[in-house]
């Protein structure tokens, strides 16, 4: 299983699931890191941690240890534009 922590800087990955059910995982979900969403790893702080992410059109910073709890599908290729990522999403339950 690949986690967000292992995603190279500049790459995009699709979230599979978030492990655990504590305040941190809850906050990650609320901030929009939900299964199926595409997350781009923009960079890391000079000391290597935390990471800067782009998700749902905004920027978010999380620590590497928390990124390890975000399971992702192996990279969907570098820098996927958002419109493309939307069309890749599975059909939503209605």
């Amino acid at each position: 299983m690949t986690s967000l922590r292992e995603i190279a800087i500049g790459s995009t990955a699709e979230v599979e699931l978030i492990t655990g059910s504590d305040p941190t995982s809850e906050r990650l979900l609320e901030m929009g890191i939900t299964p199926g969403v595409h997350v781009r790893v923009i960079g890391a702080a000079p000391l290597g941690c935390p990471l800067e992410l782009e998700v749902r059109g905004y920027r978010l910073s999380i620590r590497r240890s928390d990124a390890a709890r975000v399971a992702v599908f192996p990279s969907a290729g570098p820098r996927l534009p958002r419109s493309a990522s939307a069309s890749l999403r599975r059909p939503l339950p209605r």
Partner: peptide, 12 residues
């Protein structure tokens, strides 16, 4: 206590 969430928005 349990680790505190550090999930910080970097606003535009």
């Amino acid at each position: 206590g349990p680790p505190q969430p550090f999930v910080m928005e970097l606003p535009g």
